[in-house]
Design a protein around this nucleic acid. Structure first.
Lengths: 219, 219
DNA sequence: TAGATTGTTAATCGATTAACAATC
DNA sequence: TAGATTGTTAATCGATTAACAATC
């Protein structure tokens, strides 16, 4: 239904609109959103046309209504129970991230393989052994599994998560997970994003030079 | 030059090709890569046509040559010096990530604001105070700044990084950074990726139902 | 040789942008 | 009223996919 590029932008809209709320802004125009998110006004209006929302000529969108429409689409007001697998630094960073709750997510269990870590506390939860995952996880009524495990372990954990009935996976490992069609995977490509930087930097350097040349030629 | 979608895929190609190396594979076809990365053979050949590389009919690409071309494009064999700002769990996860070196990155300094953290050791480095950033950072000959700081601090740190001459920023915070054109920013959208999941899950559920209906109708 | 795979051109597809009538 | 902004249609742009001759 919603094109993926639009889905990707929705969290940004919401995040920005929530900031505007703190500033007491009542009306938001496509121009304001376009400027804040680095888009064109056309794109913004196209995106918002997918939502359950109507704007007002000469004013824009009522902030409260826009926020509500975004919250509905992203299901922010429902609680999404998630299980965290991997209690390393990355997993810990996520588990302790205060904004999770703000966006409707709740980590209801943490699993880890390391006997040293199993039994310790993390964000009010006790880390459970991965050995108990298959038995325990289905009882937790969680639909999302967050994989903060080494690359080598990721596919095996994903398989267990699928078998346990999870329908969404947030993958923090550097690998392509193979899952059945009905399971959604969202990849956080931290290392890949770092690897892109040299390419992007070269690109920026080149286009900056070109701009300067153009400016010089014009002068 | 290189379209951004291609740049985004290059790290995946390299990662997979490096795995094939460990398996002793000498020739890689576009079909193999397409299957492994979930692409079409056309896309793979188009992507690789941007690289300094020629394939061989009926065989594919020589693995060593393909790896070399990818390493050259991604500049893996140069050392990219990076500075880490923020020594929380997320920053620590990155600093201790063994694969950084493997992909040509070296963290040469860590900065943090918290007096409790300043002076402690992290991955063989001593955490420096953010107060010294403007003075110290330019001396480090690093071109990349990794921002693992809270959202509220990110833009200010980015400004300091730009002023200190950094040309690439890996942004782990949940915000849109404003930087001059000649500075490259790569955003790791961890929370956004999590927020996408409910939308994607709904989408999967719908298309799964549709598939089943289709199958039932066909039967 | 026969057949598989590259390299490349053309076709398709989909997303972004432009344009503009409707409207408050 | 005049002017700014929405909502939507059409145009553009660019990426992906298909197709196929060349080739080993």
């Amino acid at each position: 239904m919603l094109p993926y590029p639009v889905i990707q932008r929705l969290p940004h809209y919401l995040s920005h609109v929530m900031e505007l709320k703190d500033d007491g802004v009542a009306w938001v125009s496509s121009g304001m959103l376009a400027h804040a998110l680095g888009l064109t006004t056309s794109t913004v209006r196209q995106d918002l046309s997918h939502l359950d929302l109507t704007g007002v000529s000469r004013r824009g969108y009522r902030r409260s209504q826009l926020e509500q429409a975004l919250r509905a689409e992203l299901e922010v007001d429902r609680t999404h129970r998630a299980v965290l697998v991997g209690a390393g630094y990355l997993g810990t960073a996520l588990a302790l991230h205060g904004d999770l709750k703000r966006y409707g997510f709740e980590i209801c269990a943490v699993f880890d393989n390391d006997p040293e870590v199993v039994g310790t506390a993390l964000g009010g939860l006790t880390v459970r052994s991965m050995k108990t995952f298959t038995r325990t996880a289905p009882r937790l009524k969680a639909s999302i599994a967050i994989l903060a495990v080494p690359r080598a372990a990721a596919q095996a954990v994903a398989d267990q998560a699928v078998a346990a009935g999870f329908r969404g996976i947030l993958n923090l490992a550097y690998c392509v997970l193979r899952v059945p069609d009905q399971v959604a995977v969202s990849d956080v490509r931290m290392l890949e994003k770092l690897q892109e930087l040299p390419c992007l930097m070269r690109l920026r350097a080149v286009s900056a030079t070109r701009r300067n040349r153009g400016a010089t030629a014009a002068a």
